[in-house]
Amino acid sequence: MTDAATTIGDAHAAADHRSAWRSMRRLLSHKGLMIGAVVIALVALLALAGPLLFTGDPLKLSYRTRFRPPSSEFWFGTDHYGRDIFLRITHGAHLSLLIGVMVVLITGVGGTLIGAVSGYFQRLDAYFMRVMDALMAFPSLMLAIGIAAALGSGVVNVVIALSIAYLPRTARVVRASVMSLRHSEYVEAARVLGASHGRILFRHILPNSMAPLIIDLTFIFAYAVLADAALSFLGVGPPPPTPSWGNIIAEGRDYVVDAPWITIFPGLAISLTVLGLNLFGDGLRDVLDPRLNTM
């Protein structure tokens, strides 16, 4: 019986190897995915190399250069401190990405574990889901505001607040997939063949539950970048003078009519980054979703 289960697993693995090459080709030929990848690569490049390429000081302020519209001297104009918005956006890129990546990692891993265990072992479901329900019962931003107010403003605290806020989401998404797959034919087959719970869960159910999670994580990355901006807007984001994109918009909001460039450019930077991530996530989904693979 154990042998049979292993055979099924091996067959899966073999199929994985064969399809890996195909997947790679499909990845490279997927237009949306490639556009998304290029956008993310550019933003990531900006985040890593921006401070080296554009060496000005994003914190340098001057009363004389306040509210300058975009020009050859200040590409994206200046803010009410007289700081260069272009420099602030390039130097702020890594922070926005960092916050997004951290939140995705924490909620992805944490949500998978909680969701998988909770969806598979129904006895534990009630306990886990009650805690998740309690967290989810707070609208995520309210929770984040409360946590940020309690812990003080700072990058780490923003990450903690957003991760706690979004964890129930990923957990529920994974749990839902796991629950609907738990009674599927091939899982029943593996179970009949005597596969262990761990093997069934991690080998058979989870790989097939990843698609909704990946889709959801693209959203969560988006939310994290957007929510970081919203938290800054409400005054609980990374502390000034940190040039995070959210801070730049928040600081420019009073001047949105008279100096719109302060808010427009970081808004576009956020939108473009999130757009790239979403394209990339969609592409991944199209290519890697096992049910689409079987087509």
Partner: peptide, 22 residues
Amino acid sequence: VAVVMSEQLKAVGMKVRLDVMD
């Protein structure tokens, strides 16, 4: 005021941290 002051004090060689609360 805090932000501008901190830049001015950094310029004379001080190490400055802003603590921003509600």
